[in-house]
Design a protein around this nucleic acid. Structure first.
Length: 588
RNA sequence: GGUCCCAUAGCUCAGCAGGAUAGAGCGCAGGAUUCCUAAUCCUGAGGCCGAUGGUUCGAAUCCAUCUGGGAUCACCA
């Protein structure tokens, strides 16, 4: 066993075999092995491993694919772990692996335990995944869920694939909406002092989640703030409001099992006369990306109040953007994007090799300027990617749920988690490609059936635990803590069992592909697939009792099969951990 | 109008750096419970992969154009 990743292992073996072939040796410098793929065949009946090597190399070698495939096939037959080689279709080479190979592979899976599937793909490179980054003006609402889960799972996935990952939250605690927050909280403060504030005026946040902030302020300051001019109480109330809102948001996120390593405050960039923003803009200016000028009016419908004004602009069009972007408004204050320049520069200076922004689809228009920013700041060396999550549509009993943020009438993240459960929310959010819109129906997600894939996968894990419970009953004298599951894998030889091992063998490949493509949904689908294989095999034991995992007449075989069950349990558990959902021992 | 995302079974969606006869779940029709949790499994029907061109040995996949759906577009964060 040279590699835990079966396909990576055989890619090496196949390339080695190619090097031994005469016509390849003759033209070795002209052929590129880069396009050769080694993967599971679409149809299991074709074999265990398939390669397109002959089809890719035939042309440069001046031969036809079938003929070349026959030669390669002959070379591959020398591998003792290969039991059968066939050439099929336009020139595919299909390998069937020996039973012994699978048994050894299973043994190394068991040995690796929960670290089976870990990859060195990332080579320890530092990655920063930024997600959620909601304004601290109120509780998290359901719209934040998807980005939160996708970002969190992606970070977990990349960590497992060998990156050194920081999870980051950018707190949008600067700007006018925070002023609104503070004024709304001040009103609640007056209310807490006994004043009748009547209806919350238009333009302020009406939600009663600010009531505790008012009370806290009243308890801490008494009536003192009341007598101050706004410019004096504003910073105090702002601080308190942001702190309490962020505490609430962290709490909400925790309910979703989402955590961050770094909380980065936008306000910190504006501190000390916006020192850090100024520095960042200076840096950009120094690199020749900043000028003063005017922008053309927006295309399409011209706004009524459009005026041509001179601003300080980022010449982003030179680094791939469609239009130059304002950094300083005509009144001298900084734009939101200016803070983002400083924020990105900070990240870059912290030494990340890869920076990932998980944003909602409504920020799609922001992607190009961020990419342009990365090019300008890093001179093209920084790898910045934006992952756009399409919007989530909520349904209750098939009817769309209407939400209006202004009236304070929105479904909070907390409500969804309380009603549906953390695991179901997380898994559902991952059970769809994130570039695809998602319908989220409360009724379906709470249903504890196959309609809800998380129960299906979790149930498979619970079943593995159940097998061990059964085994303890069947063999009360066995010491399960010190049981050697590695040594008995040679007894595993049923075709269904070997197929299950083959499914487990795909895990490292899935991890790498999902991490590379930054598509955590692939893992969720794989887990479902694996669970399905496991359930199917389990049910075979009904009609064929000799296939059952636990057989009290055959102790050694039972132990061997427990090894297989254990390997399944490990992959389910490790995969579920990456998705951030629990792997229960039982689901009564 | 510009930009971005999307279009695959009746419905909801997968399809892995182009590959073999395009898959799964739900729904529909039938079946399995003296048996380790039936929260499970098995069998079947169901498709011009939105349209048209192009690239090549080969396209659901890549490119162009078009049609249809969604998002976004100013000194708002």
């Amino acid at each position: 066993m040279s590699d835990m990743n079966l396909f990576a292992d055989f890619e090496i073996r196949i390339k080695n075999a190619l090097e031994t072939i005469d016509i390849v040796k003759e033209k070795r410098s002209e052929v590129d092995f880069g396009r050769i793929t080694v993967e599971p065949p679409r149809d299991q009946t074709h074999g265990d491993v398939a390669t397109n090597a002959a089809m890719v190399l035939a042309k440069p070698l001046g031969t036809n694919p079938r003929a070349l495939a026959d030669v390669i096939a002959a070379a591959l037959r020398a591998d003792p772990d290969v039991s059968e080689v066939s050439v099929a279709g336009p020139g595919f080479i299909n390998l069937r692996l020996s039973t012994g190979y699978w048994q050894n592979l299973l043994a190394s899976m068991i040995k690796a335990g929960l670290s089976y599937g870990r990859s060195t793909l990332g080579q320890g490179r530092k990655a920063n995944v930024e997600y959620v980054s909601a304004n601290p003006t109120g509780p998290m609402h359901v719209g934040h869920c998807r980005g939160a889960v996708v970002g969190d799972a992606l970070a977990n996935l990349m960590e497992f694939a060998g990156y050194e990952v920081d999870k980051e939250y950018y707190i949008n605690d600067a700007g006018s909406q925070i002023d609104v927050l503070a004024r709304s909280a001040f009103l609640r403060y007056r209310e807490a002092l006994g004043e009748d504030i009547g209806q919350i005026p238009e333009g302020l946040y009406p939600g009663d989640y600010l009531v505790p902030v008012g009370r806290e302020l009243a308890a801490e300051y008494g009536p003192r703030l009341h007598n101050m001019p706004e410019e004096d109480w504003m910073p105090i109330v702002k601080d308190k409001s942001i702190d309490m809102m962020m505490a609430m948001i962290r709490d909400d996120l925790l309910a979703l099992n989402v955590t961050h390593d770094v909380f980065f405050s936008e306000r910190a960039l504006h501190a000390n006369g916006a020192q850090r923003i100024r520095q960042a803009i200076n840096d950009l200016t120094f690199k020749g990306h900043v000028y003063k000028g005017t922008l053309p009016p927006p295309k399409g419908q011209l706004p009524e109040d459009w005026e041509d004004r001179e601003q300080t602009l980022f010449r982003s069009t030179e680094v791939g953007d469609d239009i130059d972007r304002p950094l300083i408004k005509s009144d001298g204050s900084y734009t939101y994007f200016a803070a983002d320049v400083a924020y990105f520069k900070d990240k870059y200076d912290r030494g990340y090799d890869e920076m990932i922004y998980v944003l909602g689809a409504d920020h799609g228009g922001y992607v190009k300027r961020l990419e342009a920013l990365a090019r300008a700041v890093s001179g093209g060396s920084a790898k910045l990617t934006v992952l756009l999550c399409q919007l989530v549509k909520l349904f209750r009993n098939g009817e769309p749920v209407k939400m209006s943020k202004r009236s304070g009438n929105f479904v909070t993240l907390r409500e969804v988690v309380d009603e549906v459960g953390r695991d179901a929310v997380r898994f559902m959010m991952l059970y769809r490609k994130s570039s695809e819109p998602l319908d989220f129906d409360f009724a379906k997600v709470t249903e504890q059936s196959k309609d809800n894939p998380v129960f299906y996968v979790q149930y498979a894990h619970a079943r593995t635990a159940s097998v061990f419970r059964q085994a303890k009953d069947a063999f009360p004298d066995l010491d399960f803590d010190s049981l050697d599951l590695v040594g008995s894998t040679a007894l595993i030889d049923d075709p269904n069992e070997l197929q299950l091992i083959a499914k487990l063998a795909e895990y490292p490949r899935i991890i790498e592909a999902a991490a590379q493509a930054q598509e955590p949904h692939r893992l969720a689908f794989y887990l479902y697939d694996l669970a399905s294989f496991f359930h199917a095999h389990w049910n075979k034991g009904k009609e064929q009792p000799e296939l059952r995992f636990v057989n009290d007449k055959n102790r050694q075989l039972s132990i061997a099969r427990l090894g297989l069950v254990h390997a399944v349990a490990c992959v389910l558990k490790s995969g579920l951990a990456i998705t951030g959902t629990a792997a229960p021992e039982e689901m009564r």
